[in-house]
Design a protein around this nucleic acid. Structure first.
Length: 251
DNA sequence: GGCCAGGCCCCAG
DNA sequence: CTGGGGCATGGC
């Protein structure tokens, strides 16, 4: 099964994409990327960076079939949503995005992400801005972030800028050490840390539990945890999360 | 107009 | 170690 772009890009793992008509667009690796279902294969064909970003070489076929065998509800999600890929995103952007995410909703996270880009990022053309690198945020204060509507997350963003270099240590750490290391940053708890490990470092044992996931776990898997979905817990989580948000969960 | 959103910090027990 | 209040803001 080939990647489902709509569900992959709008399942809450990234806040960088927008859609106009049939065209998805975002800034990836400093470039304006515009794709649709038709030109996607040719766009990524000779672009190893994008192939990696879209995680085209992972064993999704096997993972989906194993998860489908393990649980009928999951099977129906996979059938309905198609192949959702876990993107390989830039760690810094994921850290900042999920600091914004706490006690927040996807629509507003997206607009806050955009506001940071338009205020502190580099302008590429008329209406495209890169997400600001930590170096571009060194002089930004908590008050500045609050003025931009970042609310109580403002001090967390400042702390993330100051500590951004610890992201470099993550690849060499085992899962629980990496979790602990990320949690040095203020505003990073279990949930945000596991999102970073999943969406930037592709750690498939991650199992982010937000309000939606807690709801579906309680309703459908009361005596189970991430181990039930191993070794593809993260992928299962993404389908279950999407199912709740699109209110398939009630059915 | 309350309620809630991909939570976490901080402080009481 | 666990539980609960508080936190900014906007969409619904």
């Amino acid at each position: 099964m080939s990647i489902n772009l709509e569900n992959t890009l709008f399942c809450g793992q990234t806040f960088a994409w927008s859609k106009q008509g049939e065209v998805f667009q975002a800034i990836v690796d400093g470039r304006v990327i515009e794709i649709d279902e038709t030109n996607f294969p040719s766009t990524i064909a000779h672009d190893s960076k994008l192939r990696q970003y879209f995680d085209m070489d992972y064993e999704y076929e096997n993972a989906e079939s194993i998860l489908s065998e393990r649980d009928p509800y999951l099977a129906s999600c996979i059938k309905d949503y198609g192949s959702i890929h876990i993107l390989n995103q830039d760690p810094w952007e994921v850290l900042m995005s999920f600091l914004l995410s706490q006690n927040n909703n996807i629509k507003r996270i997206t607009s806050m992400y955009k506001r940071l880009s338009e205020t502190y990022g580099k302008q590429l053309d008329a209406n495209h801005y890169t997400f600001p690198r930590p170096e571009e945020l060194l002089v930004v204060t908590e008050a500045d972030f609050r003025k931009l509507g970042m609310g109580f997350r403002a001090p967390y963003l400042v702390d993330a800028v100051a500590n951004h270099q610890l992201l470099q240590d993550i690849p060499s750490l085992d899962f629980s050490s990496a979790m602990q290391h990320l949690k040095i940053i203020k505003g990073v708890g279990d949930k945000v840390a596991s999102c970073i490990l999943l969406f930037a470092y592709h750690r498939m044992e991650a199992f982010p539990l937000d309000t939606w996931m807690l709801k579906v776990m309680k309703a459908r898997y009361p005596s189970k945890d991430a181990t039930f979905f191993a070794p593809y817990a993260a992928l299962a989580q993404q389908y279950l999360f999407h199912g709740e948000r699109t209110s398939k969960g009630g059915k």
